[in-house]
Each structure stands twice: as C-alpha cells, then as structure tokens.
Computed example of a mutant assay.
Amino acid sequence: MGEWNKIHYCFFDRAKGHNSPANWTGSEENKQIVRAAFEDWKAVGIGLEFEEVDTPADAEVRIGFQQGDGSWSYVGTDVLEIPLNQRTMNFGWPLDENYYGKETALHEIGHTLGLPHEHQNPKAGIQWNEDAVRTSLSGPPNNWSPETIEYNILRKIPMNEVEGSDWDPNSIMHYQFQAELINSPAPYNQEGIFPTPGLSIKDKDWLRKFYPVLESNDYIELKPFVSVPLVLSPGEQVNFIVKPNISRSYKFQTFGEVDTVMVLFEEENGDPRYLADDDDSGTDYNALITHKLLKGRTYILRVRLYFASASGETAVMMW
C-alpha cells in the first residue's frame, strides 16, 4: 500500500517535447539539486515516496526554472488545482551558483508538502521594521510588490490555522533576515536570523507526524451508505480504500464540525492518480466530493484534519 503515498514530479523540458516556454527548462545541474532535495525529505522517514516522471500530465508537482520569476511553490493540495500545463513550483535563480541553492529547493518542496513560512508563525513574536522590510524586498533579487511582501513576510498566520511547534528560527521554512529588518526580539535585532542549513530537528519531527509511515492495515474499506465515525487529532490522516461494484457517480462527505481536507485518487498501474479534492477549512460546510467511479477499479480517499483548533469527532460516508 506504500504506493498510495507517492508524489510524482516533473521538470518542464522542451527537449522532451513538453509544450512549455523555453525559459522553463533548467540545467541538469539545477535539476539534480532539486532531486537531492526530494531525497532529503524522504530520508526523514515519512510515509511519502517521490518519483520523477517525464510527462507533466502524470505529475502532481510540475517544476520550472524561469529566471527572474522568483522561487515559489503552491502550498499543499493547492497544487492539485493547477492546470496540467502550468508550473506548481519555480526556481528563479541558478541553484548551482548559490551556496543556499539546495536550501531553496528544500524550502519550496516544504511548501508543496503543506508547510507555510515559519517566520509568519504567530508564536514567533517577531516585530518587524516594516519600512526596512519593504525597501529590502522590493529590490533585487526578489523585486516583490507591496502585496507580496505583506503576504510572504509581514502577515501573521491566524493562530487557529497553526499546528506545529513554537517558533523554530532554524526551520527550512524560515527566511534569512538581516538585523536591521527586525525591531525585536533580542538578540535577533542585533544578530539577524540565519537558519542553520538543512532540515531542522523540528522540521523532521513534525513531518513524521504529518506524514506517518502507513502499513496495509492502516487502510479502512469504505462502502456505500455506511458511515464511518472518526476521532482525528491535529494533522492526523485517515485513508480509505474504495472498490465499487457498480459504475456510477458517488458522493463522499465528512460530517461534523471539524475542518478537513479530503482527496480522492484512482489506482493506475500501482500508482495513485489524483481525481478530485475539497477543503472545508475555515468554512461552515463539510468537505464534499462528487465523482464517477468505475466497477473493478480501486480508489483511495484520504481525509486529514486541517486546523489545530478543530480536532474532534467526525464521520465519513459515501453514497
């Protein structure tokens, strides 16, 4: 069942016949750095596999190297909503010419795995010199707009959306900041913040919690019109296997007052292929997916608790 926890990634490459802009294609040296970063995340001991594929249509994560466009990634299941001919991740400077090139790749993969910026953790207590931040990040190499600076730096993540440790200034999800950008706390307003390269101890601990290694008996069979009650802890995921005996449209829904994200996959040659998802986080409705399933095929439904403050009882049903 380990194959059900595989993320496929692809590098846009005109030489492979991809219908993509030429400036999305990166050098082999830069691709190798990204591959090594995926290996570092896997080596943490999480219940995920990463596989490189040649075709963008076969990948959940699609990577470009458009220089000057910044380094960025969509966060978590947002990557599943991006059209197949578009990037979900980009590296906007040569990774092989930068001492922190691999750290950039680790950081962007962290976003794909659902991790936000650590410096926006409301538990951090950072008080910014906002004018200095705006001046610094509006220039090279970022060249960010005021809106982007607000969203990526100054904005605090709402406390009810945080599940993780107290502030970790060594997290791979933390930017470097010069001392003049920080008013407090000490000593960072004198020394700046320069995370130790690589994944921090807390990065590794929390990813093992969010993506535990799953054994075959961790999958629950979900049958039509049978409600399955669940008690979920923050970040906990439950996996259902679905084997329909009739080809038709089915509905999948969570019930209760917890905030969840639900994703449906179909098995294809032993690999999971994304079909649909719904995220009810921060809303007053339950996650709901409607999709046609075919008799004789195998499907997986994943349900994960999203908000730390919304843990508790729920139920899942298909009909």
Rank of each mutant, 00 (worst) to 15 (best):
5 N>G: 05
7 I>A: 08
10 C>V: 11
11 F>P: 01
14 R>M: 07
18 H>F: 10
18 H>D: 11
20 S>Q: 05
26 G>S: 13
31 K>E: 10
32 Q>L: 02
35 R>K: 14
36 A>Q: 10
43 A>V: 10
46 I>G: 02
47 G>R: 03
50 F>I: 03
58 D>L: 11
61 V>Y: 05
64 G>F: 04
65 F>Y: 07
74 Y>M: 00
75 V>D: 01
76 G>Y: 00
76 G>R: 05
82 I>S: 04
90 N>I: 12
96 D>E: 12
105 A>M: 11
108 E>F: 05
111 H>D: 02
114 G>F: 05
117 H>F: 15
119 H>L: 13
121 N>Y: 09
122 P>F: 00
124 A>K: 03
128 W>Q: 09
128 W>L: 04
131 D>T: 12
131 D>Q: 13
132 A>K: 10
138 S>G: 14
140 P>K: 00
143 N>E: 03
146 P>T: 13
146 P>G: 05
146 P>N: 05
147 E>D: 12
152 N>L: 14
154 L>H: 02
164 G>L: 08
167 W>L: 03
174 H>E: 10
176 Q>N: 14
180 E>Y: 12
182 I>C: 10
183 N>G: 08
189 N>H: 09
194 F>K: 07
196 T>M: 11
198 G>M: 05
210 F>Q: 08
213 V>L: 13
219 Y>N: 09
220 I>S: 01
228 V>M: 11
229 P>I: 15
230 L>G: 03
231 V>M: 14
236 E>S: 07
239 N>D: 14
239 N>H: 11
245 N>R: 14
245 N>G: 08
254 T>D: 08
261 V>I: 13
263 V>T: 11
266 E>W: 08
277 D>R: 08
283 T>V: 01
283 T>N: 06
283 T>A: 12
284 D>Y: 06
286 N>R: 04
286 N>G: 02
288 L>D: 09
289 I>F: 10
299 Y>P: 01
299 Y>H: 09
304 R>M: 09
306 Y>I: 05
312 G>Y: 11
312 G>Q: 14
313 E>F: 04
315 A>Q: 08
315 A>C: 01
